[in-house]
Computed example of a mutant assay.
Amino acid sequence: MSATGRSASLDLLKWLAIVSMVGDHLRYLWVDQDWLFVTGRLAFPWFCLAIAANVARTNSIKRHYLVGFLLFSVVSELPYRWLDNGSSTLNVMPTLALGLLVAWGVHLRTRAASLLALGAVIVATLGSQWLMYGLPGVLLPAALLAALRDRRLFWLAGLLAVAGNLTNSWLLQHPLQPVSLLVMFAAFASVPLGLELLRRPWPGRVPPVGRWGWWFYPLHLVAIKVARVLL
């Protein structure tokens, strides 16, 4: 932990999640590059782990954090739909927003936090088909929070990461295909890899992922769509 209270390891995790996410979305330009889909499975669990790590360091509900997810759930939907108009789910932000609420409920255990968490689980259960990574994705930040407290629970988060990917209909219908097996391995392995990264203090300086990170998600979707049109 730095003197400013920032964790270089946490910022590095965020950077790796961003790189993995961008690589995954570059498949819209290079559709035959299946390896980008495999490495892209690291992104969502690592974003969830970053949420869990931030929640673990708080002792109250941070409204601005939730507002950020809710605001960019709306802001990101049009760019996401523009890039992938065949998607049956919303962009990833609503899943992360609901996951944040569940993680707060597990961590704070106050009446307000518990009610918000319960509401998030109900919404995720009823609307799982419209959420990227479905109900398992919403539960993943809370499972990762539990794994941060007790690393022996990493397997639960790993299974949820795999289950979230199996909401993809193609993977669910072809679970024994080589690419499907690699996807499930990558999703499960992302959990111990991420936990190990956070456990070890990073010796160097890592540029912080600040508020610009909110805008990066919708803007990089627009950039990839523009590149796809031009190319």
Rank of each mutant, 00 (worst) to 15 (best):
residue 130 W to A: 13
residue 135 L to A: 12
residue 171 L to S: 01
residue 86 G to D: 11
residue 165 N to K: 05
residue 135 L to S: 06
residue 182 L to C: 13
residue 184 M to Y: 00
residue 110 T to F: 02
residue 140 L to H: 06
residue 100 L to D: 03
residue 102 V to S: 02
residue 171 L to G: 00
residue 96 L to T: 00
residue 113 A to E: 07
residue 83 L to N: 07
residue 101 L to Y: 02
residue 71 L to C: 13
residue 107 H to F: 02
residue 82 W to I: 15
residue 70 L to W: 10
residue 81 R to A: 15
residue 101 L to C: 13
residue 82 W to M: 14
residue 85 N to S: 06
residue 79 P to G: 12
residue 88 S to W: 07
residue 194 G to L: 07
residue 137 G to M: 07
residue 76 S to D: 14
residue 121 V to M: 13
residue 194 G to F: 08
residue 154 F to G: 03
residue 127 G to K: 12
residue 143 A to W: 12
residue 180 S to F: 06
residue 206 V to S: 14
residue 144 L to V: 12
residue 77 E to M: 08
residue 81 R to C: 10
residue 100 L to I: 01
residue 156 L to H: 03
residue 171 L to H: 02
residue 148 L to H: 11
residue 142 A to I: 02
residue 118 L to N: 02
residue 100 L to S: 06
residue 70 L to H: 03
residue 93 M to I: 10
residue 170 W to M: 00
residue 91 N to I: 01
residue 78 L to V: 14
residue 167 T to Y: 05
residue 163 A to R: 07
residue 186 A to V: 01
residue 191 V to P: 00
residue 179 V to Y: 04
residue 124 A to T: 08
residue 201 P to G: 06
residue 158 G to E: 10
residue 138 V to T: 08
residue 196 E to R: 13
residue 72 F to P: 07
residue 167 T to Q: 13
residue 112 A to I: 05
residue 115 L to F: 03
residue 194 G to A: 10
residue 111 R to D: 14
residue 164 G to R: 08
residue 92 V to E: 00
residue 105 G to Y: 03
residue 176 L to S: 09
residue 139 L to K: 09
residue 110 T to E: 05
residue 181 L to C: 11
residue 154 F to C: 10
residue 178 P to I: 11
residue 187 A to H: 03
residue 120 A to G: 13
residue 199 R to M: 06
residue 196 E to G: 09
residue 88 S to L: 11
residue 205 R to C: 07
residue 86 G to T: 09
residue 170 W to E: 12
residue 140 L to P: 01
residue 177 Q to V: 03
residue 110 T to K: 03
residue 159 L to A: 15
residue 152 R to F: 09
residue 188 F to V: 05
residue 134 G to W: 09
residue 163 A to W: 08
residue 156 L to S: 01
residue 177 Q to T: 13
residue 180 S to I: 14
residue 104 W to T: 04
residue 127 G to T: 14
residue 151 R to M: 13
residue 151 R to F: 15
residue 189 A to S: 01
residue 96 L to E: 00
residue 146 A to M: 14
residue 183 V to R: 01
residue 161 A to V: 06
residue 94 P to F: 08
residue 179 V to N: 04
residue 144 L to G: 14
residue 148 L to R: 10
residue 93 M to V: 09
residue 106 V to Y: 08
residue 101 L to Q: 02
residue 123 V to F: 08
residue 136 P to K: 04
residue 204 G to M: 03
residue 111 R to T: 15
residue 106 V to Q: 01
residue 197 L to S: 01
residue 156 L to T: 11
residue 98 L to F: 06
residue 115 L to S: 04
residue 159 L to M: 14
residue 71 L to I: 11
residue 96 L to A: 05
residue 160 L to D: 09
residue 166 L to Y: 10
residue 78 L to M: 11
residue 153 L to S: 03
residue 113 A to S: 10
residue 156 L to I: 15
residue 197 L to K: 00
residue 113 A to Q: 11
residue 139 L to S: 12
residue 153 L to A: 07
residue 143 A to H: 10
residue 74 V to I: 15
residue 118 L to K: 02
